[in-house]
Amino acid sequence: MSAYSTKIRKNDLAFILFILPAFVLFFLFFIVPFIRSIYYSFTDLYGYNRNVNFIGLSSFLEAFRDENFLTSLTVTLKYALFVVIIGNIVSLALALLLDTNIPGKSVLRTVFFLPNVMSLIIVGFVWTFIYGDVYRSFMEILGNPEYLQISWLGNTSIAIYSIGITAIWQSAGYAMIIYIAGLQNISTDIIEAAYIDGASAREVFFRIKLPLISPVIVMNVILATTSCLKVFDFPLAMTSGGPGYATTTMALYIYTLGFNMQRTGYATAISVILFLIIAVITVFLMKFLKMREEKL
């Protein structure tokens, strides 16, 4: 370290000036709202009422007696499990297929990635149309068989999975691209050596490729899990949370409570619960990722 750089790298005033614009904005529009959210979650704030009472943990206790909240929690978890697991299997399968020398693979990659650049809201509309009129037209062609009469978005037990299928369609290409990048990082020497030693394609996949890309899998699972737990646009566009509360995810419930019912205090309490769930899951998955890396 030369004297020159030491001198300049302790030029506190200059560095503070460089950081200041970002930090001021971040402070005003992130730190302040975040602290206010935590503060309000301990109050009974209603709409824009100025009369605020501190009620401690009451809102959190209420949440665990609130059936609609518990529904939103299970709906969100079901959706996340479904989309994360099926979505990652689809993405990994596509990545493996497109990492071979199949003709026209760049066109195929584009096809699978394309839904990812579209707006979630508008994709939601198209799929609402598909689950409704398009499905009905298909059934008419097939002569309306009884066992295929499915109300994709109207049936309380399957609507959330129908939304999940849309989400997988929209996001699989993104995870696929990351998987392809991971697979291309595996040296071809290892794989060729394995084939020369007489390994089958299945063995190469399970014994070599899968272990080597496991950090990529964990990373994709983290990305998908956090985004699934926050899902908002799809249920808003496709079902508005219905039928009943069957597709009201946590994010949508926070929105409904905060803006439609004006229950600001209670809504912020639920938003803090959502934050805690996401933070715990992310930290847990990151620890898991680190453990795997140390093992390898």
């Binding site: 970002a22 971040f26 005003l28 529009f29 992130f30 730190i31 302040v32 709202p33 975040f34 206010r36 959210s37 309000y40 956090t226 737990l229 926050k230 908002f232 946590m250 994010a251 926070i254 929105y255 905060g258 803006f259 600001t264 809504a267 912020t268 938003s271 803090v272 959502l274 934050f275 996401i278 933070a279 992310t282």
Partner: peptide, 20 residues
């Protein structure tokens, strides 16, 4: 401090961000 924001879902600050 900046990175800790990545753990916070937008919906946790949504209501108070609008107020602020």
């Amino acid at each position: 401090i900046f990175l800790s924001a990545m753990f916070v879902p937008f919906h946790t600050v949504m209501i108070t961000l609008l107020k602020t």
